[in-house]
Amino acid sequence: MPSPVAVPIVLTDDEREQLLAWSRRPSSAQALAARSRIVLACAEHPADTNVQVADRLGVSRNMIHKWRNRFASHRLDGLVDEPRPGRPRTIADADVERVITATLETSPKDATHWSTRSMAAHVGLSQTAISRIWRAFGLQPHRQDTWKLSKDPQFIDKVRDVVGLYLNPPERAVVLCVDEKSQIQALDRTAPILPMMPGTPERATHDYVRAGTSSLYAALNLATGKVIGSLHARTRAIEFKKFLVTLDQQVPAGLDVHVVLDNASTHKTPAIKRWLTAHPRFVLHFTPTSSSWLNLVERWFAELTTKKLQRGTHRSVRELNTDIRQWIETWNDDPKPYVWTKTADQILDSIARYCGRINDSGH
Protein backbone atom coordinates (compact mmCIF):
# COMPACT_ATOMS: atom_id res chain seq x y z
CA MET A 1 0.00 0.00 0.00
CA PRO A 2 1.63 3.29 -1.03
CA SER A 3 2.39 5.78 1.74
CA PRO A 4 0.38 9.05 1.74
CA VAL A 5 1.86 12.10 0.08
CA ALA A 6 3.61 14.37 2.60
CA VAL A 7 2.01 17.77 3.21
CA PRO A 8 4.08 20.46 1.44
CA ILE A 9 5.66 23.06 3.72
CA VAL A 10 6.19 26.63 2.46
CA LEU A 11 7.56 29.15 4.96
CA THR A 12 7.20 32.90 5.11
CA ASP A 13 10.29 34.94 5.90
CA ASP A 14 9.03 35.63 9.43
CA GLU A 15 8.32 31.96 10.05
CA ARG A 16 11.75 30.91 8.79
CA GLU A 17 13.44 33.50 10.99
CA GLN A 18 11.52 32.35 14.08
CA LEU A 19 12.20 28.67 13.38
CA LEU A 20 15.92 29.33 12.95
CA ALA A 21 15.96 31.25 16.25
CA TRP A 22 14.23 28.39 18.05
CA SER A 23 16.57 25.78 16.56
CA ARG A 24 19.81 27.64 17.34
CA ARG A 25 19.32 29.62 20.52
CA PRO A 26 20.88 27.93 23.55
CA SER A 27 17.91 28.87 25.75
CA SER A 28 15.35 27.11 23.55
CA ALA A 29 13.76 23.94 24.87
CA GLN A 30 15.25 20.86 23.22
CA ALA A 31 11.83 19.58 22.13
CA LEU A 32 10.94 22.89 20.46
CA ALA A 33 14.38 23.07 18.83
CA ALA A 34 13.96 19.55 17.40
CA ARG A 35 10.49 20.37 16.03
CA SER A 36 11.84 23.55 14.43
CA ARG A 37 14.61 21.59 12.69
CA ILE A 38 12.02 19.12 11.38
CA VAL A 39 9.91 21.87 9.79
CA LEU A 40 13.00 23.60 8.34
CA ALA A 41 14.17 20.30 6.81
CA CYS A 42 10.72 19.67 5.28
CA ALA A 43 10.69 23.15 3.76
CA GLU A 44 14.29 22.90 2.50
CA HIS A 45 13.67 19.58 0.71
CA PRO A 46 10.00 19.70 -0.36
CA ALA A 47 10.38 16.67 -2.66
CA ASP A 48 11.59 14.37 0.15
CA THR A 49 9.24 11.91 1.84
CA ASN A 50 8.83 11.73 5.61
CA VAL A 51 11.07 8.65 5.62
CA GLN A 52 13.88 10.52 3.84
CA VAL A 53 13.64 13.49 6.22
CA ALA A 54 13.58 11.10 9.20
CA ASP A 55 16.74 9.34 7.97
CA ARG A 56 18.51 12.67 7.50
CA LEU A 57 17.66 13.92 11.01
CA GLY A 58 17.98 10.56 12.77
CA VAL A 59 14.42 10.49 14.15
CA SER A 60 11.33 8.35 13.51
CA ARG A 61 9.02 8.76 10.52
CA ASN A 62 6.04 9.20 12.85
CA MET A 63 7.74 12.20 14.47
CA ILE A 64 8.26 13.85 11.06
CA HIS A 65 4.64 13.11 10.08
CA LYS A 66 3.27 14.52 13.35
CA TRP A 67 5.11 17.85 13.37
CA ARG A 68 4.87 18.42 9.62
CA ASN A 69 1.08 18.10 9.84
CA ARG A 70 0.84 20.12 13.04
CA PHE A 71 2.75 22.98 11.42
CA ALA A 72 0.69 22.77 8.24
CA SER A 73 -2.51 23.07 10.28
CA HIS A 74 -1.53 25.57 12.99
CA ARG A 75 1.77 27.09 11.72
CA LEU A 76 4.14 28.20 14.51
CA ASP A 77 1.55 27.73 17.27
CA GLY A 78 1.33 24.05 16.34
CA LEU A 79 4.90 23.44 17.50
CA VAL A 80 4.29 24.63 21.05
CA ASP A 81 3.10 22.03 23.56
CA GLU A 82 -0.64 22.05 24.08
CA PRO A 83 -1.90 23.10 27.54
CA ARG A 84 -2.42 20.23 29.95
CA PRO A 85 -5.30 19.76 32.43
CA GLY A 86 -4.81 21.01 35.96
CA ARG A 87 -4.12 24.27 37.69
CA PRO A 88 -3.46 27.17 35.28
CA ARG A 89 0.14 28.28 35.00
CA THR A 90 1.15 31.22 37.15
CA ILE A 91 4.48 31.85 35.40
CA ALA A 92 4.37 33.43 31.95
CA ASP A 93 6.39 32.14 29.00
CA ALA A 94 8.39 35.36 29.02
CA ASP A 95 9.42 34.74 32.64
CA VAL A 96 10.47 31.16 31.82
CA GLU A 97 12.53 32.39 28.85
CA ARG A 98 14.14 35.05 31.01
CA VAL A 99 15.19 32.45 33.60
CA ILE A 100 16.54 30.01 31.01
CA THR A 101 18.41 32.73 29.11
CA ALA A 102 19.99 34.10 32.29
CA THR A 103 20.94 30.60 33.48
CA LEU A 104 22.64 29.62 30.22
CA GLU A 105 24.14 32.91 29.11
CA THR A 106 25.11 34.81 32.28
CA SER A 107 26.66 34.26 35.70
CA PRO A 108 26.27 36.14 38.99
CA LYS A 109 28.82 38.78 39.98
CA ASP A 110 29.81 37.02 43.19
CA ALA A 111 29.90 33.36 42.10
CA THR A 112 30.78 31.03 39.23
CA HIS A 113 27.21 29.77 38.84
CA TRP A 114 23.63 30.53 39.81
CA SER A 115 21.79 29.06 42.78
CA THR A 116 18.01 29.00 43.10
CA ARG A 117 18.20 31.83 45.64
CA SER A 118 20.49 34.08 43.61
CA MET A 119 18.48 33.48 40.41
CA ALA A 120 15.21 34.17 42.23
CA ALA A 121 16.57 37.51 43.47
CA HIS A 122 17.93 38.31 39.99
CA VAL A 123 14.70 37.76 38.03
CA GLY A 124 12.15 38.54 40.75
CA LEU A 125 10.53 35.10 41.03
CA SER A 126 10.26 32.70 43.94
CA GLN A 127 12.95 30.14 44.69
CA THR A 128 10.39 27.36 44.17
CA ALA A 129 9.56 28.70 40.71
CA ILE A 130 13.24 28.73 39.72
CA SER A 131 13.62 25.17 40.96
CA ARG A 132 10.62 23.99 38.91
CA ILE A 133 11.84 25.72 35.75
CA TRP A 134 15.32 24.24 36.08
CA ARG A 135 13.93 20.75 36.63
CA ALA A 136 11.63 21.08 33.61
CA PHE A 137 14.53 22.04 31.35
CA GLY A 138 17.10 19.70 32.89
CA LEU A 139 19.37 22.50 34.16
CA GLN A 140 21.73 21.91 37.10
CA PRO A 141 24.07 24.90 37.48
CA HIS A 142 25.66 23.41 40.62
CA ARG A 143 27.03 20.43 38.68
CA GLN A 144 30.12 20.27 36.48
CA ASP A 145 31.26 17.24 34.50
CA THR A 146 34.66 16.74 32.91
CA TRP A 147 35.36 16.08 29.24
CA LYS A 148 38.30 15.84 26.88
CA LEU A 149 38.62 15.13 23.19
CA SER A 150 41.65 13.30 21.86
CA LYS A 151 43.95 15.25 19.55
CA ASP A 152 45.59 12.08 18.25
CA PRO A 153 45.93 12.41 14.44
CA GLN A 154 45.36 8.63 14.19
CA PHE A 155 42.32 8.69 16.46
CA ILE A 156 39.89 7.11 13.99
CA ASP A 157 42.29 4.36 12.92
CA LYS A 158 43.14 3.48 16.54
CA VAL A 159 39.48 3.39 17.59
CA ARG A 160 38.65 1.04 14.72
CA ASP A 161 41.66 -1.14 15.53
CA VAL A 162 40.92 -1.54 19.25
CA VAL A 163 37.13 -1.83 18.94
CA GLY A 164 37.54 -4.32 16.09
CA LEU A 165 39.74 -6.38 18.40
CA TYR A 166 37.06 -6.31 21.12
CA LEU A 167 34.14 -7.19 18.86
CA ASN A 168 35.93 -9.70 16.64
CA PRO A 169 39.00 -11.10 18.42
CA PRO A 170 41.35 -13.18 16.24
CA GLU A 171 41.38 -16.97 16.46
CA ARG A 172 44.11 -18.80 18.39
CA ALA A 173 44.98 -15.61 20.23
CA VAL A 174 44.56 -13.97 23.62
CA VAL A 175 43.50 -10.32 23.90
CA LEU A 176 44.91 -8.60 27.00
CA CYS A 177 44.02 -5.08 28.14
CA VAL A 178 47.13 -3.80 29.92
CA ASP A 179 47.86 -0.71 31.99
CA GLU A 180 49.58 0.36 35.18
CA LYS A 181 47.96 1.90 38.24
CA SER A 182 50.82 3.91 39.65
CA GLN A 183 51.42 5.57 42.99
CA ILE A 184 48.87 3.57 45.00
CA GLN A 185 49.27 4.99 48.48
CA ALA A 186 49.40 2.89 51.64
CA LEU A 187 47.30 5.03 53.99
CA ASP A 188 46.44 4.54 57.63
CA ARG A 189 43.96 6.72 59.53
CA THR A 190 45.21 8.68 62.53
CA ALA A 191 42.52 7.09 64.72
CA PRO A 192 40.60 3.81 64.61
CA ILE A 193 37.66 3.56 62.21
CA LEU A 194 34.35 3.51 64.06
CA PRO A 195 32.08 0.70 62.83
CA MET A 196 28.64 1.19 61.35
CA MET A 197 25.69 1.15 63.74
CA PRO A 198 21.94 1.44 63.23
CA GLY A 199 21.31 5.03 62.14
CA THR A 200 25.03 5.85 61.97
CA PRO A 201 27.38 5.15 59.04
CA GLU A 202 30.94 3.94 59.41
CA ARG A 203 33.14 6.87 60.39
CA ALA A 204 36.80 7.56 59.75
CA THR A 205 39.08 10.50 60.45
CA HIS A 206 39.66 12.90 57.58
CA ASP A 207 43.44 12.87 58.09
CA TYR A 208 45.78 9.97 57.49
CA VAL A 209 49.40 8.83 57.62
CA ARG A 210 51.26 7.90 54.42
CA ALA A 211 53.31 4.71 54.56
CA GLY A 212 54.68 4.65 51.00
CA THR A 213 53.42 3.80 47.52
CA SER A 214 53.17 0.81 45.21
CA SER A 215 52.38 0.42 41.51
CA LEU A 216 50.31 -2.29 39.89
CA TYR A 217 50.66 -3.66 36.35
CA ALA A 218 47.51 -5.51 35.32
CA ALA A 219 46.45 -7.45 32.23
CA LEU A 220 42.72 -8.16 31.83
CA ASN A 221 41.88 -11.18 29.67
CA LEU A 222 39.10 -10.03 27.33
CA ALA A 223 37.54 -13.48 26.97
CA THR A 224 37.69 -14.83 30.52
CA GLY A 225 37.83 -11.69 32.66
CA LYS A 226 40.79 -13.05 34.62
CA VAL A 227 43.57 -10.65 35.61
CA ILE A 228 47.33 -11.11 35.68
CA GLY A 229 48.83 -8.64 38.14
CA SER A 230 52.35 -7.65 39.10
CA LEU A 231 53.33 -5.16 41.81
CA HIS A 232 56.42 -2.96 41.60
CA ALA A 233 57.89 0.02 43.39
CA ARG A 234 58.17 2.04 40.16
CA THR A 235 56.71 2.12 36.61
CA ARG A 236 59.73 2.37 34.33
CA ALA A 237 60.41 0.53 31.10
CA ILE A 238 62.37 -2.01 33.17
CA GLU A 239 59.24 -2.91 35.16
CA PHE A 240 57.10 -3.01 32.02
CA LYS A 241 59.55 -5.41 30.36
CA LYS A 242 59.40 -7.66 33.44
CA PHE A 243 55.62 -7.64 33.19
CA LEU A 244 55.78 -8.63 29.51
CA VAL A 245 58.02 -11.55 30.52
CA THR A 246 55.39 -12.54 33.10
CA LEU A 247 52.68 -12.46 30.44
CA ASP A 248 54.84 -14.51 28.09
CA GLN A 249 55.25 -17.16 30.80
CA GLN A 250 51.54 -17.34 31.72
CA VAL A 251 49.96 -17.31 28.25
CA PRO A 252 50.16 -20.73 26.50
CA ALA A 253 52.93 -20.87 23.91
CA GLY A 254 50.62 -21.77 21.01
CA LEU A 255 48.62 -18.54 21.21
CA ASP A 256 49.32 -15.08 19.85
CA VAL A 257 49.06 -12.22 22.35
CA HIS A 258 47.30 -9.01 21.34
CA VAL A 259 47.94 -6.28 23.92
CA VAL A 260 45.79 -3.13 24.22
CA LEU A 261 47.67 -0.36 26.02
CA ASP A 262 48.18 3.41 26.13
CA ASN A 263 50.90 5.61 24.62
CA ALA A 264 53.16 5.93 27.68
CA SER A 265 56.81 6.45 26.78
CA THR A 266 57.81 3.40 28.84
CA HIS A 267 55.90 1.22 26.35
CA LYS A 268 58.00 2.36 23.37
CA THR A 269 61.64 2.38 24.49
CA PRO A 270 64.35 0.67 22.38
CA ALA A 271 64.62 -2.11 24.97
CA ILE A 272 60.89 -2.84 24.70
CA LYS A 273 61.05 -2.79 20.90
CA ARG A 274 63.94 -5.26 20.95
CA TRP A 275 62.02 -7.55 23.28
CA LEU A 276 58.95 -7.43 21.02
CA THR A 277 61.10 -8.22 17.99
CA ALA A 278 62.39 -11.30 19.80
CA HIS A 279 58.81 -12.31 20.73
CA PRO A 280 56.82 -11.88 17.51
CA ARG A 281 53.64 -13.43 18.94
CA PHE A 282 53.11 -10.19 20.91
CA VAL A 283 51.21 -7.52 18.95
CA LEU A 284 50.63 -4.09 20.54
CA HIS A 285 47.47 -2.07 19.86
CA PHE A 286 47.75 1.50 21.14
CA THR A 287 44.67 3.44 22.23
CA PRO A 288 44.42 7.09 21.10
CA THR A 289 45.92 9.72 23.39
CA SER A 290 43.54 10.96 26.12
CA SER A 291 41.28 7.93 25.56
CA SER A 292 41.76 5.72 28.60
CA TRP A 293 38.02 4.86 28.39
CA LEU A 294 38.90 2.63 25.44
CA ASN A 295 41.00 0.30 27.60
CA LEU A 296 38.80 -2.17 29.50
CA VAL A 297 41.34 -2.71 32.25
CA GLU A 298 40.55 0.83 33.42
CA ARG A 299 37.06 -0.42 34.31
CA TRP A 300 38.68 -3.14 36.41
CA PHE A 301 40.92 -0.58 38.12
CA ALA A 302 37.75 1.31 39.07
CA GLU A 303 36.43 -1.85 40.75
CA LEU A 304 39.68 -2.28 42.66
CA THR A 305 39.58 1.34 43.82
CA THR A 306 35.96 1.47 44.97
CA LYS A 307 35.80 -2.00 46.51
CA LYS A 308 39.22 -2.26 48.16
CA LEU A 309 41.48 0.81 48.08
CA GLN A 310 39.17 3.76 48.67
CA ARG A 311 38.18 2.81 52.21
CA GLY A 312 41.03 0.45 53.00
CA THR A 313 43.70 1.13 55.61
CA HIS A 314 47.29 -0.12 55.29
CA ARG A 315 50.13 0.49 57.69
CA SER A 316 52.84 -0.47 55.21
CA VAL A 317 53.45 -1.06 51.51
CA ARG A 318 53.86 -4.77 52.22
CA GLU A 319 50.39 -4.85 53.79
CA LEU A 320 48.98 -2.94 50.81
CA ASN A 321 50.56 -5.34 48.30
CA THR A 322 49.25 -8.36 50.21
CA ASP A 323 45.75 -6.91 50.18
CA ILE A 324 45.87 -6.22 46.43
CA ARG A 325 47.18 -9.73 45.65
CA GLN A 326 44.42 -11.31 47.72
CA TRP A 327 41.81 -9.18 45.98
CA ILE A 328 43.10 -10.28 42.55
CA GLU A 329 42.98 -13.93 43.65
CA THR A 330 39.40 -13.49 44.84
CA TRP A 331 38.48 -11.82 41.55
CA ASN A 332 40.02 -14.64 39.53
CA ASP A 333 38.07 -17.24 41.50
CA ASP A 334 34.87 -15.85 39.94
CA PRO A 335 35.90 -13.51 37.09
CA LYS A 336 33.33 -11.40 35.27
CA PRO A 337 34.46 -10.41 31.77
CA TYR A 338 33.40 -7.00 30.51
CA VAL A 339 31.44 -7.10 27.24
CA TRP A 340 32.09 -4.32 24.73
CA THR A 341 28.93 -3.53 22.73
CA LYS A 342 29.41 -0.31 20.72
CA THR A 343 30.87 -0.45 17.23
CA ALA A 344 33.54 1.98 16.07
CA ASP A 345 31.01 3.74 13.82
CA GLN A 346 28.64 4.27 16.76
CA ILE A 347 31.46 5.73 18.87
CA LEU A 348 32.63 8.05 16.11
CA ASP A 349 29.05 9.18 15.36
CA SER A 350 28.48 9.90 19.05
CA ILE A 351 31.65 12.01 19.24
CA ALA A 352 30.66 13.85 16.04
CA ARG A 353 27.22 14.67 17.50
CA TYR A 354 28.83 15.90 20.72
CA CYS A 355 31.25 18.11 18.80
CA GLY A 356 28.31 19.52 16.87
CA ARG A 357 26.48 20.32 20.11
CA ILE A 358 29.42 22.13 21.73
CA ASN A 359 30.13 24.05 18.50
CA ASP A 360 26.51 25.23 18.35
CA SER A 361 26.49 26.25 22.01
CA GLY A 362 28.29 29.51 21.34
CA HIS A 363 31.38 28.56 23.43
Rank of each mutant, 00 (worst) to 15 (best):
A92H: 05
E17S: 10
D349G: 05
E319K: 04
T287Q: 02
A41W: 02
D14T: 14
I351N: 01
P141H: 05
H65I: 13
H113F: 15
L296R: 01
A278D: 13
A136M: 04
A344I: 10
D349R: 03
S316R: 01
V53T: 15
S28R: 01
N221G: 06
W114M: 09
A173L: 01
H122C: 14
A54D: 06
Q154N: 12
V163F: 03
K148W: 09
K241L: 15
V257G: 04
T306G: 04
A34V: 12
D152N: 05
L320Y: 08
K336D: 15
S73F: 05
A136Y: 00
V245E: 15
E44T: 14
A344Q: 01
D349N: 10
S350G: 15
R299G: 08
M63F: 13
A237V: 07
T112V: 12
I38M: 15
V317T: 13
R56A: 15
Q326L: 11
D334Y: 00
S150P: 05
L57R: 03
R311T: 12
V245A: 12
D13H: 08
D262R: 02
M1V: 12
A278P: 02
R70S: 13
R25N: 12
S115Q: 06
W300E: 01
N221K: 05
R61M: 06
S126M: 05
P198V: 10
P335H: 09
A233E: 11
K109M: 11
S361A: 14
A233W: 03
I91T: 15
E319S: 11
T330R: 02
A218H: 01
T305G: 13
A264V: 07
N168T: 14
R357C: 08
V227G: 10
N295C: 11
Y208W: 08
T90D: 11
Q250S: 11
D161N: 08
L304Q: 07
E202R: 00
L296H: 01
V39I: 13
V159W: 00
Q52E: 12
V317I: 13
N321E: 11
R56F: 11
V96A: 07
L167E: 06
N168E: 11
W114G: 09
Q140N: 15
R234Q: 14
D256K: 09
S290I: 07
R357A: 11
T213F: 08
S214Y: 01
F71L: 09
S3R: 07
Q185F: 04
L261S: 02
P335E: 06
L19A: 06
A41S: 06
D349M: 07
A136H: 05
A33I: 03
D333M: 07
E329F: 06
R189A: 13
D93K: 00
A21C: 07
Q249C: 08
V80E: 07
V297F: 09
R203Y: 05
T330F: 04
P2R: 00
T205M: 06
E171W: 00
L261V: 11
L176E: 00
D349K: 08
A29T: 12
G356T: 14
L220A: 03
